[in-house]
Computed example of a mutant assay.
Amino acid sequence: MKKIERLISIVMILLQKKVVSASEFSRLFHVTKRTIQRDMETLNYANIPIYAEHGTNGGYALMEEYKFDKRLLNHKDIENILVALGGFEGLITNQDIKTTIQKIKGMTSLDISPILDVTFYDWPGRSQINEEILFIRQAIEKNWLLTFEYVDQIGNKTDRLVEPYKLHFRELHWYLFGYSIEREDYRTFKLTRILNIQKGGFFVPRTDQEFQHKKQSNEQKKGVNVHLSIDAAVRDQFIERYGKEAVTKESTGNYLATIELPENQYAYQFLAGFGNKVKIIKPESFIAKYVIFLEEAVKLYK
Rank of each mutant, 00 (worst) to 15 (best):
E141D: 09
H54I: 05
A61I: 04
A52Y: 08
V118D: 01
L116K: 11
D111Y: 07
G178R: 05
D111Q: 10
T42E: 14
H75D: 12
L145I: 06
P114R: 03
G59D: 03
G87E: 00
G58A: 03
R34S: 15
R38H: 11
K157S: 13
K166W: 03
G58E: 05
V83I: 15
N44V: 05
Q138I: 01
I140K: 04
Q102C: 10
Q37A: 14
E79M: 06
E149D: 15
D159I: 06
R170Y: 09
T108M: 02
L62E: 07
G106I: 06
F68P: 00
F120R: 02
E65D: 14
E171Y: 02
L62G: 06
H54Q: 11
T56K: 14
Q37L: 09
T35P: 00
I78F: 02
M63F: 02
L72P: 00
Q138L: 07
K98M: 08
N143R: 01
M40A: 04
R38M: 07
L72F: 10
M63A: 15
G155C: 07
E53H: 00
H173L: 13
Y121H: 08
L176M: 08
K70A: 13
I129Y: 04
H54Y: 11
I48H: 03
D111G: 05
R170M: 09
E64T: 07
L145N: 12
Y51I: 05
K105P: 00
I115V: 12
I133C: 08
F177M: 09
D39S: 05
R38A: 13
Y121M: 11
T35C: 08
P164V: 04
W174M: 04
Y60P: 00
H75L: 13
L62K: 09
D69W: 00
L73G: 10
Y60H: 09
Y150F: 03
N74W: 00
Y175W: 01
E163A: 07
T99M: 12
N130G: 15
D77A: 10
W123K: 14
Y66K: 06
E171R: 12
E89G: 12
Y165C: 09
L85Y: 04
G125Q: 10
F120H: 11
F148D: 04
F88A: 15
I140A: 08
R126L: 11
G58S: 10
L167P: 02
E79Q: 14
L82E: 00
G90D: 05
I129H: 02
E65T: 14
W174T: 06
R38C: 07
E131A: 15
G125S: 11
I112L: 15
P164Y: 01
A46V: 00
W144T: 02
G125P: 02
K166L: 07
K76D: 10
